[in-house]
Every structure is written in C-alpha cells, then in structure tokens.
C-alpha cells in the first residue's frame, strides 16, 4: 500500500528577466569581471600602443604626408585592436564552461548578444581614447579642431565593427583555428566601415576634396544598423544548445 505522498514542492517559478534588464545584467557582469581582471582591456591597450609605434616607424614623414596617413593609422588601429577584443568576447565564459549556461538560461539570446556588442564597443572606445591622441602626437597631427567629429566617426565605426564582429566571433568558437579565421572572415566584411572611416577622417582633417563629412557618417551608421539588426534577428537561430 502506498500512502499518498505529499505533493512535491513546486520548483520556484523562474521568470526570465525582461529584455532591457537582461542586457543590463550581462553588461554589468562583464564590466565587473573586466574591471577585476583587466585582461582584455590591458592586452588591447598594449596592442594599440605597439601599433602606434609600428605606424610611427613605418610612416612618419613630412607634416603633409603625416596628415594623409593619420586616418589610415587610426582606423587600422581600431580594426586590429577591435579584432583582439571581439575574439575574446566569450572567452571567459568558454574558459569557465559557463557559455552553455548563459545560452541555456531563459534570457533572450539576442539580449545577450546586444550586451556583448555594447561591451566590445566600450572596449574599443576606451582603447581609441588612448591610442588616437598618442598617434596624433607621434605623427604630429593637430586634431583639436575636429576632435568631436573624429570621435563620432570612430564611435560609429566601432559600433559597426562590433555589430559584425561579435556574432561572428561567437560562431567562430566552434571552429578550429578560430583566432586565425576570425580576422580573415571579418576584415573583408568591414571594409565598408574602413573606407567610410578613412574617407570621413580625411574629410575632417581637410586632406580630401570633399568637405561634407556627413554622408560617410550616415553610411557608417546605416551599416551598423543593418548588421546590428540582422545579427540580433538571426542570433536566436545561430546558437542552439
């Protein structure tokens, strides 16, 4: 005879946090861990500094030429340092075996991606805040007149780059040679950002024939929007299990 068992305690009902909250939670978590370990930021910064020296030794010349070289140097630094950061997006989760948990959690996956994109943009922005003035000093280019414009261009460019690079970096994790494959894969795709950025920066510095920097800004913004939307939309389909 089996006596009637007391009803098993219901598991506590877990509700997925809302979309914005998910973004904020993941963002806060990443900010906290990054502030504690400073791994990614430190490596990116150091890489950016090394790059400035490479550019300085490679290109420093007369002032006029320096001014023409400056946009390419800035945007090259953004792409290279950015690749480093993007490649590390889910590195900590992968090391701790927490990636599966993050994906399995009831949180919406695109919210996680959005937070990760924001993290990558913030990291690139921090690196560029250090690297660009340094490049300006080393190449002896005066940026004071157009600092705001160039900052805006770089920010939009960083968003576009992160919007493409972050989802691809997540996907690349399961491939062999992921860290080698990532730049091969990302660079051709972000060429539009590079072209727009370099052109826009040379407009800002006054070395181009055009004088209106807005079309290129608009172009970069559209790029970031389309890829951001596409990535967020597809992310649910990209990552399973």
């Amino acid at each position: 005879m089996t006596e009637a068992r007391p009803p098993a305690p219901r598991p506590p009902r877990t509700r997925a946090p809302g979309y914005t909250r998910t973004v904020l939670i993941v963002l806060a978590k990443d900010a906290r861990t990054e502030l504690r370990s400073k791994q990614t930021l430190a490596t990116m910064l150091l890489f950016g500094l090394v790059l400035t020296f490479v550019y300085a030794f490679g290109f420093v010349s007369d002032p006029a030429t320096n001014k023409k070289v400056m946009p390419g140097a800035m945007w090259g630094a953004l792409l290279f340092a950015g690749t480093l950061g993007v490649g590390r997006t889910f590195a900590r989760e992968a090391e701790d075996g927490a990636f599966g948990a993050l994906v399995l959690s009831p949180a919406e996956r695109s919210a996680i991606l959005l937070a990760k994109i924001a993290v990558n943009v913030a990291l690139s922005a921090l690196v560029m805040v250090v690297v660009v003035p340094l490049l300006a000093v080393m190449l002896r280019v005066d940026l004071t007149d157009c600092a705001g414009l160039i900052a805006l261009q770089l920010l939009l460019g960083a968003i576009g780059f992160a919007a493409v690079g972050t989802p691809l970096a997540v996907m690349a994790v399961s491939a062999r040679f992921a860290e080698v494959l990532l730049p091969i894969v990302v660079f051709p795709m972000v060429t539009p950002v590079l072209i727009a950025g370099v052109k826009g920066a040379s407009v800002a510095l006054g070395t181009a024939i055009e004088t209106d920097p807005w079309p290129w800004l608009q172009f970069t913004a559209a790029y970031g929007l389309v890829f951001g939307a596409g990535g967020l939309f597809l992310f649910e389909r990209m990552v399973t299990e």
Binding site: A222, V226, A229
Partner: peptide, 29 residues
C-alpha cells in the same frame, strides 16, 4: 521583431539612398 528588422533595413536603405551618391565629383578621387 521580424517586422522591426525589415523596417530597420528599409529605413537604412532609404537613408543611404538619400545621401547623394554622386556628391563626390568624378574628379574627387
């Protein structure tokens, strides 16, 4: 979300189309 996606795409496309693509004179580059 699919709708929002499509809307964003088309909005971006419009934004692009509105920038005068030919504003760079042929001699620009």
């Amino acid at each position: 979300r699919a709708l929002a996606f499509a809307a964003t795409l088309s909005a971006a496309g419009l934004a692009l189309a509105q920038t005068p693509a030919a504003d760079a004179p042929a001699s620009a580059a």
